[in-house]
Design a protein around this nucleic acid. Structure first.
Lengths: 200, 200
DNA sequence: CCATAAGAATGAACGGCGTTCAAAAGAATG
DNA sequence: CATTCTTTTGAACGCCGTTCATTCTTATGG
């Protein structure tokens, strides 16, 4: 019957969501290196093997978590840009500040975006790669406004560089090890950096 | 006898060096995540347990490897600064270029500096933390030349930010995943970034 | 020079991990 | 209700870092 078939797919989807929710909770609490299949499944209230009925392996589950984090991050960035008719510099400052806030407020989820590596020979699906470009695309318009003479290609490159520079400052600061900016000064240093990067 | 005592310590030191050399070779070939106690000891020609007679655990061995990488990196940076009486901008460009080259040419060793994390509750020895500051200290004089009016504290902060910005661009580019600058353009983008960062 | 104590080297064994898979339980069908 | 097909389950496997009783090596005192 159609009804029962629907029930089957629904149950499967519900299990999938339960596992994802449990995994996300574990990620938030313990970070990527603390994510264990047994902890996830016991939190989700299912057997260990159930995880492998829904996902190929843990890596694919992490990719799903990272997808969601990227979406949230994208939304945080979008909703941070000030009202229309603000300067490119102002938009860049807003984006950088929102990025810094997101990283600080969702540290483990944000860190997982960069810590996670696929084993030798396996590559992330094209779909996932696409989602990532949102971060870059948000920057391009402001850069174009600041340097209208630059080519599309150069702008795309400069956007990656701008993102990576801000990212580096936030990363080393939040990692707290290594020579990073102290957390107290992080926001002001990011602001100073973006100021330099948006000077014409 | 004194001679025999020396022999014991010498043997111990030799074993330590053999293990470090083997571990470094493994690190270069396979990266931090591919570093396994059994591979290291079989490459060093000793028993599995021998590693734990010389090091508390694998983390301490990695810390030793990272110490050496930091020393090599420090030397690479030092010997990159152009002849005396060059501008602060030129020195910064040389440092950034040397950093980029080192990261590219010693990718796995360089990456291990940032990928390695101690388990919850354990912290890196003060000694190791000190070694890291060499990277920052190399930048301060050039920044001071560019902005003599800034306080010592602000300069120290700005040096960390400058380093982290360059680091971020190199990191995302070499990781090749995520939205990094393509390897081909890495050096020119780092140059463009440093140019912006050293504009007065 | 030997007896004995101290130190170092060894690798089997342990617990924890991701992953698999034969078996059990459940759902669909005629 | 019997039968076939799916799904779920958790014991078991292989790999990992780490430990430790045992064996082998070196140093010491008589």
């Amino acid at each position: 019957m159609v009804n029962e078939m629907l029930k089957r797919e629904t149950k499967r989807a519900e299990l999938r969501e339960r596992i994802i929710a449990a995994a996300e909770a574990e990620l938030i609490e313990k970070g990527l290196s603390g994510l264990k299949a047994r902890d996830i499944t016991s939190r989700a209230g299912c057997a260990l093997g159930a995880l492998y009925n829904v996902f190929d392996d843990l890596d694919m589950l992490v990719l799903e978590l990272n997808s969601r984090t990227l979406a949230d991050l994208g939304n945080a960035l979008s909703s941070s840009v000030p009202v229309e008719s603000s300067s490119g510099r102002q938009v860049l400052q807003a984006l950088a500040a929102a990025y810094t806030d997101f990283a600080r407020d969702h540290q483990h989820r944000w860190m997982a975006l960069f810590e996670h590596r696929l084993p030798e020979g396996k590559y992330k699906p094209e779909e996932y790669r696409m989602e990532q470009t949102v971060l870059i695309d948000a920057i391009v318009p402001s850069l174009k406004e600041l340097w209208p003479e630059l080519s599309k290609e150069t702008l795309a490159m400069r956007a990656r560089t701008t993102f990576a520079a801000v990212h580096g400052v936030v990363l080393l600061s939040l990692q707290q090890q290594f020579v990073g900016v102290p957390l107290k000064e992080l926001k002001s240093e990011v602001e100073a950096l973006v100021e330099l990067l948006s000077r014409q």
